[in-house]
């Protein structure tokens, strides 16, 4: 067998083995990698490269240490899952860097982190002034997470005392001009409904690049032809405006009429509609 063929076979086997081992270790490896897991990953990759290249030793001799590394890594993460103490030992503990707005210099020293690095980490979190920080912690993976002081946190509806309607995730129902049945059925509609909606907006299915339906059943479209303007769904704000107008009308009639009983009736109705509008506002305007 010529050398290049045996090299090719080795490469394919090593590649496959690496893929299988990487799958076994799991996808956690990439996202919340600890320093140790990072090294294990590199070591396994390195071994795969070596056994491909080294034609003198048989292939299985290289696969054994790869498997050993993989199962050791899995074993360690299993141990870490089971007890808090082994978790602290193997995966390391998070260390608080700033508490109550004060930098903990001793902990900085323990992590061998300079003031510049700390500031850089804060800046990457969009904080340029240390006095805006309530709490900062270095995770075992080395990333610094920051809790800004409550007056420096982004404004949320909750802080404003504003009521907002719950809004579940939208579903993609059209991709590249084809209907996605899975998304449609998840949100509780069918093809017939979708075709009706498309007809309402005057758009052919083939011309739709992307279509999404939100929880209130409004269809948002993006077309291949960017020159065509698709009307944004207006049903919710339109209903809100109609109700508002009706409420104002009722108040007007209450003022205009001479009949005492009718006046009272109009006023009562105006009040009812007003109360309803207030309750509906989060759904119709901020939905």
């Amino acid at each position: 067998m010529p050398d290049w063929i045996s090299l090719l076979i080795r490469a394919i086997i090593a590649f496959t083995a690496m893929f299988v081992f990487a799958k076994l270790i799991g996808k956690r490896q990439l996202s919340q990698i600890t320093f140790f897991e990072y090294i294990v990953g590199i070591a396994i990759g390195d071994m795969a490269a070596i056994i491909t290249d080294d034609v003198r030793t048989p292939l299985y001799m290289g696969l054994v240490p790869m498997a050993a590394y993989t199962f050791l890594a899995i074993g360690l993460s299993w141990l870490a899952l089971k007890s808090k103490r082994s978790r602290d030992f193997f995966e390391g503990k998070a260390r608080v860097l700033i508490q109550d707005g004060k930098i903990l210099e001793d902990n900085l020293k323990k992590e061998r982190m300079s003031t510049d690095e700390l500031l850089e980490n804060l800046r990457s979190r969009n904080i340029f002034q240390v006095s805006d920080v309530e709490f900062a912690i270095m995770e075992s993976s080395g990333t610094v997470n920051v809790l800004p002081k409550s007056d420096s946190q982004p404004l949320t509806p909750k802080l404003m005392g504003m009521q907002v309607a719950p809004k579940p995730e939208p579903q993609t129902v059209i991709m590249d001009g084809t209907i996605m049945d899975e998304g449609l059925s998840t949100i509780g509609f069918n093809r017939l409904w979708l075709k009706g909606e498309l007809e309402k907006q005057g758009v052919a299915l083939e011309n739709v690049f992307l279509g999404q339906v939100d929880a209130t059943g409004q269809l948002y479209l993006d077309l291949y032809d960017d020159k065509i303007k698709v009307p944004q769904p207006q049903a919710l704000p339109l209903t809100y405006a109609t109700l508002k107008k009706a409420q104002a009308d009722l108040e007007l009639y209450a003022l205009a009429t001479q009949d005492v009983r009718a006046k009272q009736a109009y006023e009562k109705e105006a009040g009812e509609v007003d109360r309803m509008i207030r309750e509906l506002e989060p759904y119709l305007r901020r939905g």
Partner: peptide, 20 residues
């Protein structure tokens, strides 16, 4: 008002969220 009422019923039918 009648049209708004009809719209509200449509929304009630088309939304999956119980509260809404």
């Amino acid at each position: 008002l009648k049209s708004a009422q009809a719209n509200l019923e449509t929304f009630a039918l088309s939304t999956q969220n119980k509260q809404a």
